[in-house]
Design a protein around this nucleic acid. Structure first.
Lengths: 303, 303
DNA sequence: TATATTTTTATACAAGCGGTATACTAGAAA
DNA sequence: TTTCTAGTATACCGCTTGTATAAAAATATA
């Protein structure tokens, strides 16, 4: 992406955090980032499209970080889960994501609303999957409810904690407290056999969502991550290194975030990696190859 | 209040529900309610003041209804509580209060924001008080946390339930489910001795909030309510009836919703009632008299 | 280096917003 | 009958998002 465009995104992001989305006019952004109106509308078709661009960068980073915490760890370890949630809540606060969410939902921009709605459902879906890791497949019927209630309860706890302690909020304390409540809530709801929403709803809400492939995606993260470190250790030429990481990032991005991944592009990228990286990390490459095949098959089924 | 003004409020309310606050321009309101711009700004100093006026009417009604459910009932009966919550959630949905809340919080109107924030805290305070009724004074240290978490959990459950069933949402079912979770959560949190926020925070958040007088206010509702029905039964002259109910409503309104109630006005209204209502409901009047004295004393302490 | 193409800038413009100001009018009270 | 009040109609202000256009600057190509 254009450096200049990236700069505008960064500046606008700052302004949105400081003053809020609505309160920031396009004129403000133009002045703050030193571009003209023409350039702005050359980059983005509207203010909301700019916001989406900002969201995407934050959210991608968040997913990456979230998965990195899990790499090589036991997914049923609740301490790991707490770390993941903590990290997400800190990101939320840093970027004032909740406020921006609310502002968007209040606006009249349907595209933006849908986008935000989808990303919220994505988070819910992730949480649901993690709950299966934590509490076991057998409790699955109750875990969507628990994911819904946990997000609500956590959000409110954080909100009022912030109100109580202003700047000195204790995110990690609140997260731990909320997770404690969650654990008991799961027990309670399982014991009562009380279900409010069927987990199948998630598939209705997120059509084309990569179903049941979360673990495979986590493996993909793990493999690409370790392959990257192999490259970093062994490749001296900076140009080559940049090239390979770009290829790897592309594969990850394409297969995880694209509705219908472009199969041949991915295969070609993989081939380039295999042929050019001087026999480095052949194991990882083979792993990635297999994972990509699996994921593409699942994607094909979901069409 | 002026009939015409009331009409504008009603029309604007309709528009806000249909299109949302932000999306409704003042021009829309002028056309829809058939008034001119001058008249509008004669009634309201701004669009947000109009919204506050709408809120006030809804919220007052909600409080009234909420207290009426409790009259003559055992406050520790959880079924009564469920009825109260149900009623509030139905009102919320009917008037799209949550959406309007969000829209306001996203706007740049500081007055409006503070007003909304305060009314949310009021709801939390009420919930906290009811939880003391339900679960006992001894659990008080944990009940603010529970109130916070309950609102979060309930709101999310309702939101996703609506998403799942669109128009066929099952508010009463969701409320019951959420209350079940609440009961277990209270047990859990008391057993663990785990506290996140001290209930004293409420007084910091709501300065000048009528502290510990919720029960007395409920008595006031009960007394005025029964006095009204005595009047309705016995007073034939419509003019007189209207006069007395107006006086009673004034007393209630002034003492409950005004920061510093005008003591002499209230006393004069009470005197008028005593002298003119032909010895009807003297018991109730005496009750109200006593309650008013108590409440005024508490208000004086809180200054 | 010279030419062609794209990007960026600086504007003017349109339509709509919330809000103010003012001249005018119909109807009730004095 | 005059005076006062509530309401109307309308022009205006400064702001908003978004479009259009011509000139200028940067970049690519030959």
């Amino acid at each position: 992406m254009n450096d200049r465009k990236q700069h505008v995104i960064k500046m606008a992001h700052q302004l949105f955090i400081e003053k809020g989305y609505q309160a920031t006019s396009i004129q403000d952004i133009l002045e703050y980032s030193g571009i003209s109106k023409g350039t702005f509308y050359n980059y983005f078709s509207s203010k909301s499209e700019l916001l989406i661009a900002i969201y995407k960068t934050i959210y991608k980073k968040l997913q990456q970080d979230r998965n990195e915490i899990l790499i090589g760890q036991n997914p049923s370890d609740i301490e790991i889960f707490i770390k993941q949630i903590e990290m997400q809540m800190i990101t939320n606060r840093k970027h004032k994501l909740i406020t921006l969410y609310e502002e968007v939902m209040a606006s009249n921009d349907i595209d933006l609303k849908q986008y935000i709605q989808r990303s919220r459902l994505n988070s819910l879906h992730w949480l649901f999957g993690r709950f299966i890791d934590l509490f076991g497949e057998d409790k699955k019927p109750y875990l969507l409810d628990c994911a819904i209630m946990f997000t609500g309860l956590l959000q409110h706890n954080l909100q009022y904690n912030r109100m109580a302690f202003e700047s000195g909020e204790q995110i990690s304390h609140v997260v731990r407290y909320s997770v404690n409540r969650l654990v008991k809530m799961v027990e309670d709801v399982v014991m009562d056999g009380d279900q409010l929403h069927k987990p199948e709803l998630l598939e209705k809400w997120l059509p084309g969502c990569k179903k049941d492939n979360r673990k495979i995606i986590e493996q993909l993260y793990e493999s690409t991550s370790s392959l990257k470190s192999v490259y970093i250790k062994n490749i001296k030429d900076e140009k080559d290194l940049e090239k390979y990481t770009e290829l790897l990032d592309f594969i990850q991005e394409e297969i995880i975030h694209t509705r219908s991944p472009r199969k041949y592009l991915i295969e070609s990228a993989l081939l380039t990696l295999k042929q050019n990286s001087a026999n480095l990390g052949q194991n990882e490459l083979q792993m990635i190859d297999q994972i990509v095949i699996d994921l593409l098959n699942i994607a094909a089924e979901n069409v």
